[in-house]
């Protein structure tokens, strides 16, 4: 189903990470998520946006309000044309890292959100799509 609201944030520096999570927070609040879920969503955005800055240098984060089977959800798409991930399964294990981080980013974001999908191709880039549903 087509999103009813959508905000697109270009990610090129660490200041954009702050901007992205601010947008996500605003939308989550507007949609009526609990204050805990608002924080959880903002934190997940922070992780995937930082992943872009660290590994791909630039990309975008799109936050949107979606509706499926009568449920409202907030969907975050983080997209880049960076180097891509050779072994996605491995990258999703906590502790995995390539650029000197703790590697909590992606597996952490998955734990924070309800739905999480990642697709990546070496040399082409990575797309993470994740959704939090309203309870």
């Amino acid at each position: 189903m087509a999103p009813r609201f959508e905000a697109r944030i270009r990610i090129r520096s660490d200041a954009d990470i702050v901007a992205a999570r601010r947008q996500g927070r605003a939308l989550a609040e507007q949609m009526g998520f609990s204050s805990t879920d608002v924080t959880v969503i903002a934190t997940a955005i922070s992780e995937v946006a930082r992943n872009i800055v660290q590994y791909a240098r630039e990309g975008e984060v799109v936050v949107s309000a979606t509706r499926e089977d009568g449920r409202d959800g907030l969907t975050i798409v983080a997209r880049d044309q960076g180097p891509g991930i050779a072994d996605v399964v491995k990258a999703m294990q906590p502790g995995y890292s390539t650029a000197n981080s703790l590697g909590l980013g992606l597996p952490g974001a998955r734990r924070l959100m309800d739905d999480f999908e990642i697709s990546s191709r070496v040399g082409e880039g990575t797309t993470v799509t994740m959704t939090k549903w309203q309870r």
């Binding site: 805990t36 924080t39 959880v40 903002a42 934190t43 906590p94």
Partner: peptide, 14 residues
């Protein structure tokens, strides 16, 4: 550290 932040941190494993 705020209640919501503490909650999210623990979920994230921090």
């Amino acid at each position: 550290i705020q209640p919501e932040v503490a909650f999210a941190m623990v979920q994230l494993g921090l």
